[in-house]
């Protein structure tokens, strides 16, 4: 699944460079263009928010970054992080699929998949980080939507990711559950994990964002620091999006 990542130690080296770089990337499903001509660097630092209306291509962009789909055109390069390895990535879906076993066993499965120890301590640490240790023996599919999303986060963290990709993780959650997820994401970001999160919730973008990438109609309409994006949007598309207009293309 990493075959699209250019394994070239001379490219994109240096600690200030991006973790992942997209050059001229397009993605077409059949005859329908989903993403067109993207140039995008994802560097370490505070979370990057992918903002945009439904159907703009945010999910597909995340899947491209994860390597779940391959670009139809262009290049996607991953930088080697400290220690000379490629960045580890993890993905949390809008509706994560829980394995039919206990919460603890779901985490253990993710640890095993990542080739890491499945000791009781390792499992407890991860469940503690998402405040689920008291439900460790509960069948995962019996958990509430918010608890399932947190368990999905614990599974993602089991990979010890350098880059954590989240696809609308709170879209189907109530405000309390949303806050619990956002708190965990903020903590993870503070620990140095690069977070990229797709959302159409502008409040969430404000609360979490280091910078915002506005995706409209399969193209990147604007990219700027969160504060600038909301106070001084530099493109017409961004202004109309913030005004609540239906923005279908740039």
């Amino acid at each position: 699944m990493q075959d699209r990542i250019v394994d070239d130690p001379t490219s994109l080296t240096g600690s200030d460079g991006p973790l992942v770089r997209l050059e001229r990337v397009s993605y077409t499903a059949g005859d329908t263009p989903i993403l067109t001509d993207l140039w995008l660097d994802i560097a370490s630092g505070p979370p990057t928010i992918l903002l945009g209306p439904n159907g703009a291509g945010k999910s597909t962009l995340l899947k491209l970054l994860m390597g779940l789909v391959a670009p139809t055109e262009g290049n996607l390069e991953a930088r080697r992080v400290l220690g000379g390895r490629l960045p580890r990535m993890a993905f949390v879906f809008q509706r994560p699929v829980m394995l039919k076993r206990s919460a603890a066993a779901n985490v253990a499965y993710a640890l095993r998949a990542a080739g890491r120890s499945t000791s009781g301590n390792a499992i407890r640490d991860l469940l503690d980080r998402v405040a689920l240790d008291h439900l460790r023996d509960r069948p995962a599919r019996r958990l509430s939507a918010g608890e399932q999303q947190r368990l999905a986060l614990a599974r993602a963290l089991a990979r010890e990711p350098d880059l954590l990709l989240l696809d609308e993780p709170t879209a189907s959650l109530d405000p309390t559950a949303t806050k619990a997820v956002e708190d965990i994401v903020a903590n993870v970001a503070r620990e140095g994990v690069k977070v990229v999160i797709a959302t159409h919730d502008m409040g969430q973008a404000r609360r979490l964002g280091g910078d915002v990438v506005l995706v409209v109609g399969g193209r990147i309409a604007e990219r700027s620091a969160t504060e600038d994006f909301f106070k001084r949007p530099s493109t017409e598309a961004a202004r109309r999006f913030l005004a609540g207009d239906l923005v279908l293309s740039t």
Binding site: M1, L68, F93, V97, A110, A113, A114, R159
Partner: peptide
């Protein structure tokens, strides 16, 4: 149902 989740976990 599981394809994306398992692929993301590199199973």
């Amino acid at each position: 149902e599981y394809a994306h989740e398992l692929t993301a976990m590199q199973i």
